[in-house]
């Protein structure tokens, strides 16, 4: 079975600034992929190259088996990070317009527009102008316009940014629904929590390069540093000397210990009871957030004064700047 998306050795430069650096990626059909990374990591640039809005300087991209997304645009749904609607058009007009541009027509188009509006509860707003809609309503229209034509591949760039909790919930339901229908979904975000719950697989990108690629459980297993949190009254200082403690943060009311692989938390518990009375003892599994922050920090450029400049040449060179 062909991959829904393949990137091999893709590089994109804006002047002296390398936005995406020899990037490889394979996405299987039906997979939900979280594309994570800090701001300026190269997420939007990569997505725009996938969409054939930008072209890579080096490397190959294959989308649904074609070398250019332009050839299969009608089978892809895309929600850009910078998204908007025509203010003067009615909700119905704008959905019909986007639908037509994606190759829908006639009765099929009418039916899908009506269904989409019903799904997000905006049926009564169909003949109202976009400018009369609230921000949350506009966002709903944007989601449904991206998937109106039942695409096989859906690419969402920062879909959660700027949403209220209601819309976050709605978007999650839409994504779960897409997964159930076996649609391949790629979405970029820097909100790890969303990715953790929704994705089959996660890719972390920083400074244009891939730092991490795997399922959530794989990543957790690989980076299984465990954290031990103790609270209570007494002396916690001796715990810093215990075998298997990599790093200790001791306070008057407790301790936070980072354990090396294979350390038994029970031994530490016994040791703590010697000198203190405990009110809390917890083994924390690291969340993605912590893993990513650690990885990204470790990946930091040696000299921070160089770090400040790369974004600027990108703008000056006239290339779209990855936000």
């Amino acid at each position: 079975m062909t991959d829904a998306l393949t990137l091999s050795n893709v590089t994109k430069r804006f002047g002296d600034f390398t936005a995406v650096d020899a990037f490889d990626l394979r996405v299987a059909p039906g997979e939900v992929l979280g594309f994570l990374g800090p701001n300026g990591a190269g997420k939007t640039t990569t997505i725009r190259m996938v969409m054939s809005i930008l072209y890579p300087d080096e490397g190959q991209i294959s989308v649904l088996g074609h070398s250019r997304a332009t050839e299969v645009k009608d089978r892809i749904g895309y929600l850009p990070e910078e998204r908007g609607l025509y203010r003067k058009m009615t909700v119905n007009q704008i959905l019909r317009y986007f639908g037509k541009l994606k190759g829908l027509r006639g009765r099929d188009l009418n039916r899908r527009v009506a269904e989409a509006l019903e799904r997000v509860g905006l049926s009564e707003w169909a003949s109202r102008r976009v400018e009369t809609l609230s921000k949350g309503m506009s966002q709903k229209i944007q989601f449904v316009s991206a998937i109106l034509h039942a695409p096989e591949l859906v690419i969402l760039d920062e879909p959660f940014s700027g949403l209220d909790p209601m819309n976050i919930d709605l978007l999650k339901r839409l994504l779960i629904d897409l997964r159930r229908r076996n649609v391949t979904v790629i979405f970029s975000t820097h909100q790890m929590e969303q990715a953790e719950h929704l994705c089959d697989r996660i890719v972390l990108i920083n400074r244009g390069r891939k730092l991490l690629d795997g399922t959530v459980s794989e990543i957790r297993a690989q980076h299984a540093t465990r954290i031990l949190v103790l609270e209570g009254e007494g002396d916690f200082e001796p715990l810093a000397e215990c075998a298997g403690v990599a790093h200790a943060h001791i306070t008057a009311g407790g301790a936070r210990l980072e354990l090396l692989d294979g350390t038994d938390p029970d031994g530490i518990l016994r040791r703590a009871l010697d000198t203190a009375r405990l009110s809390r003892f917890e083994v924390q599994r690291p969340n993605l957030q912590e893993i990513f922050v650690k990885l990204v920090e470790a990946d930091a450029v040696p000299d921070p004064s160089d770090e400040a400049t790369p974004a600027a040449p990108g703008a000056a060179e006239g290339g779209p700047v990855d936000a």
Binding site: M51, S52, I53, T70, K73, D74, I76, G77, Y78, L79, P80, E82, R83, G84, L85, Y86, R87, F98, L101, K102, Q142, S145, A146
Partner: peptide, 13 residues
């Protein structure tokens, strides 16, 4: 300025 353009570019060149 209304950021419609990138939405359009996902459908047309």
């Amino acid at each position: 300025s209304s950021r419609v353009v990138e939405v359009l570019l996902s459908a047309v060149s």
